[in-house]
Amino acid sequence: MEAKHTADFLPGTLEMLILKTLSRGTNHGYGIAQHIQQVSGDALKIGEGSLYPALQRLLVNGWVAAEWGVSENNRRARFYQITPAGRKRLAEEVRNFDFVVDAIGRVMGAA
């Protein structure tokens, strides 16, 4: 492992990150993983073993939709797109996340 600090995810945060990524535009699995890694400055590395099951869960709940298409370098790829229900879900998760982070911050600050 190159990165020494790979953050442990709070349960459910991976889905939130995926939804956030997709809210900027459709993307394929590789692109999603890349985006999260880049934006987080390599702090968050998504293992493929957890990315795809998470994508499946999002599909089952109807928060994302998938479609086969062609990638930027002419490769066949499966593109994921956030659905309106997914956007609503994302908003909820962000609210919860902010609340939790805020709370944790206060606890840590008090110490």
Binding site: G29, Y30, A33, Y52, R76, A77, R78
Partner: peptide
């Protein structure tokens, strides 16, 4: 099958990178 295909393509993309 979709998922398997997706994973295979993902692997190829990493390879490209």
């Amino acid at each position: 099958q979709d998922l398997a295909e997706d994973l295979r393509i993902h692997q190829e993309m990493i390879e490209d990178e």
